[in-house]
Design a protein around this nucleic acid. Structure first.
Lengths: 152, 152
DNA sequence: TTAATTGCAAACATTTTGCAGGTTC
DNA sequence: GAACCTGCAAAATGTTTGCAATTAA
């Protein structure tokens, strides 16, 4: 009843709304905001980073809603959780099959094309189980291993 | 509790003590206890599980010491951290190259022989970096994929 | 002795939860 | 109008840290 102008979906939002609907996610303002931000391009964001960016864009979203939404989007297959750091879940907007390269010194996470790695000969699975996914993480250090005895 | 006999290193402890010394770790009672428990056979234990088992064996070890020791043993190459669950680090007493199979429903973690999987064609690494390790985690679900209403 | 190690509890960071109030269809 | 969603704050992990007391070499 208030004379607030109705929210006009932008082009980007329109696409995201369709996507959310297609995946059975009710497109609320917060979810649209979060999904638009994440799906705009392939990237890796933590919940905290999502919160900061959404707020930076002028919208208000609570921390709880960010967590709820990221969990929902993951369950619905719109984003993917990546576990490389034990203390922080990263959400990957690239849900196509691919692997990761993780720089342990900097925390930088980078996609690896699936073609670049071949995983073959998977083991016999426990009975009654199916593969949900195969995660490959190449961990790299920024400095070459230094010999323990002699310096350079 | 008073007239507790002085702790005599058992055969197992003797081996562990040598191992600790060989890796530059001062063999204190707590470290011996934790290392003996972990290295007794290939297994995956969380810090909490280590704490419970050490105490079950009659020794007292504080939570802080368990965390400190597990971190130390990891740094010294006696155990390996496995990150599959974002909310819990698992310590693997098998430091030989191998991969993991993770049952997401039960939390069960199982080793996969490296021969069972082939990872080839690693990508070009960022300049100045070296591979620290390649983690492969096969995630399986206990139930077959149920058909979703809409295609993926 | 002397330096390292332990234990306790408080601090911390991340994520989850309960519930009142708001929004949507 | 009914059902769902959001926000706030408190709770629930899991892990780290500060510092005094203890232990090992």
């Amino acid at each position: 009843m208030a004379d607030e102008p109705p929210r006009q979906p932008s082009d980007a939002s329109a696409g995201v709304i369709s996507l959310l609907l297609a995946h059975g996610v009710a497109p609320t303002r917060q979810r649209i905001e979060i999904a638009t931000l994440l799906l705009e391009r392939p990237q890796h964001l933590s919940a905290e980073q999502v919160l900061v960016r959404v707020r930076a864009s002028g919208q208000h979203v609570s921390k709880a809603t960010v967590y709820n939404t990221l969990g929902l989007l993951t369950r619905k297959g719109l984003v993917r959780e990546v576990v490389v750091d034990p203390q922080r879940v990263v959400y990957d907007s690239n849900v196509a099959p691919h692997y990761h390269l993780y720089e342990v010194d900097t925390g930088r996470l980078e996609d690896i094309e699936p073609a670049a790695v071949s995983v073959a000969g998977l083991p016999s699975l426990p009975p009654g189980t199916v593969i949900e996914g195969v995660d490959v993480v190449v961990r790299v250090r920024s400095r070459p291993a230094e010999p323990s005895a002699s310096g350079v």
